[in-house]
Amino acid sequence: MSLATTQVATRGAVAVRSVDKSYGNQQVLHEVDLDVAEGEVLVIIGPSGSGKSTLLRTINHLDKVDRGTISLDGELIGYKVRNGKLHERRESEILAQRTEVGMVFQNFNLFGHLTALQNIIEAPIYARKIPKAKALARAKELLARVGLADKAGAYPRQLSGGQQQRVAIARALALDPKVVLFDEPTSALDPELVTEVLEVIKDLAKSGTTLIIVTHEIGFARDVADRIIFMDSGRVVEQGTPNELMTNPQHERTKSFLSKVIEPAFNI
């Protein structure tokens, strides 16, 4: 069954407006403006420390912005306007909003004391109040979809890194989010396990779900993205289709970065 079984096509538009974010004296996001269309697959690339992961974390309000706004389908994330000013939402409201934004982290973040199946049903039951029988049926469907139907009763310690990340993807989808964020989903994996995770994400990308993916896998970015943005020093430097950005980058910083990550030359 398709991952998009309950996905509505016209949902998941993200708007980032003039976002700044600092940690102490270090500003990590500078005046970031970004629109992600409903159903678009946006891939973010750039050097380490360029603000890619921080941008993802602000989209679901894991990190609060210092300035600017982020909205999902026209609704401000983490804030609401009262008397012409922004006020942070109550924690219960923020948690409810996060159920609309699935996130897959670098290091899986599975609950070690729960089985794969239990990890997936936890949020639907307690955050969405979905009946347990319905949550279990959906979880089994998702495990089958990511190729792990036979691992429902396995604990994270009994799974490979690639299998754990596939469970994490199924968990993110269990709430039927409007958008799914992937924060370097293969960076913690051994090289031979990367492909199995990327194949699951590629399949999801065909389903009409809005995806925002931070990755260092440039070949994967070229294959899966509708649009790629290049970030450096907390700024969106350049963006375009995979063909435009990979074959004809316009900014010198983009050219320099891509020259080091696309078929680098080795002196032997």
Rank of each mutant, 00 (worst) to 15 (best):
D35T: 11
D35F: 05
D35V: 09
V36G: 04
V36K: 07
V36A: 10
A37G: 12
A37V: 04
A37N: 13
A37L: 13
G39H: 08
E40A: 14
E40Q: 15
L42V: 07
V43F: 04
V43N: 08
I44D: 06
I45V: 15
G46W: 07
G46C: 14
G46T: 10
G46K: 11
G49D: 10
G49M: 09
G49T: 07
S50N: 12
S50F: 04
S50R: 09
G51H: 07
G51T: 04
K52C: 11
T54N: 13
T54V: 15
T54P: 12
T54L: 12
L55Y: 04
L56T: 14
R57F: 13
T58Q: 03
I59V: 15
N60V: 07
H61R: 15
L62V: 10
L62K: 02
V65E: 07
D66Y: 06
R67S: 12
G68I: 00
G68W: 00
G68M: 01
T69V: 01
T69Q: 13
I70N: 06
I70D: 05
S71D: 12
L72K: 03
L72Y: 03
D73Y: 10
G74R: 11
G74Q: 07
G74V: 05
G74D: 11
L76Y: 14
L76R: 06
L76N: 07
I77N: 00
G78E: 11
K80L: 12
